[in-house]
Amino acid sequence: MKSVLYIKNMVCPRCIMAVQGILDKMGISYTTVNLGEIVLKEELMGEIREDLNDRLEKFGFTIINDRKGQLIEQMKNLVIANVHHSNEGKDIVWADLISNELKLDFKYLSSLFSSVESITFEQYVINQKIERSKELLVYDELTLTEIAYQLNYSSVAYLSSQFKKVTGMTPTQFRKSVVKNRKSLDDV
């Protein structure tokens, strides 16, 4: 019987590869490994589950056992996948995306997110978009207009306004600065 494990702090393709390596080394059969989620071919019990969790924790991951924590991690992973791992300028309606994927009312999910994470879901999305824009600014391959389009901002001015509100400097100042104050995705 298939079983799904939700994993905290899986934020990139390397995280997926690290988790797959752990599963392979332990001989645990799985169907898929995605951001924040492992679909196992059969349920893990007792010592094997504890051993897996111990090995995951050495890499900074954790099995999430409570339903609310799983929902919040799924919300975060949907944002990360759409902001950091997609190069299209998508017109995303976050409330629709989240409620359709998780099959729950967005107001409930947003309230749950805020109560546990101490920031609103909307602020989390903004923080992720700003981190992605920092990454793109550091690469120095795209113009500010292209970055605004890619991150679905209505204008460069709107991106610049949010960027300054979050970082204290404009995107241009950030690009010119010597110190690039980037955070790892799981710290955002």
Rank of each mutant, 00 (worst) to 15 (best):
D51S: 10
G89L: 01
I98P: 03
L56W: 02
T62C: 13
L104N: 15
I64M: 07
E57L: 05
D96G: 05
Q70P: 01
I92P: 11
R67N: 07
E88H: 10
F61D: 02
D105T: 09
D96V: 13
D51M: 14
L102G: 01
L52V: 05
D54I: 14
A95N: 14
Q70A: 05
L104M: 15
K68A: 10
D105A: 07
D54W: 05
K58D: 01
K68Y: 12
I63L: 03
R49Y: 12
L56C: 04
D91G: 07
L52Y: 06
K58S: 12
S111N: 15
T62Q: 12
E88S: 09
K90A: 13
L109C: 04
S111A: 13
F106G: 09
E101N: 15
S99L: 03
G89P: 08
L102M: 08
L102R: 07
L52A: 02
D96T: 15
L97T: 02
N82I: 08
F59K: 13
N77K: 08
L102S: 07
N65M: 07
L109I: 07
L78E: 15
Y108A: 00
D105F: 10
D54F: 15
V83K: 04
G89Y: 00
N53Q: 11
D91R: 14
M75Q: 00
K90W: 06
E88I: 10
E50A: 13
N82S: 14
V83F: 02
N77F: 04
L112V: 00
N100A: 11
E101Y: 12
I80F: 06
F61P: 04
S86R: 08
L112M: 09
M75H: 08
N87H: 15
S86V: 12
S99P: 02
Y108R: 01
E101L: 15
G89K: 01
I64F: 06
L56I: 02
G60F: 03
D96L: 14
L71D: 10
S110W: 00
D54T: 13
N100Y: 11
L97Y: 05
L104C: 10
N100I: 02
F59P: 00
M75P: 03
M75E: 04
S110T: 08
K103I: 10
M75C: 10
F59D: 02
K103H: 12
K76W: 11
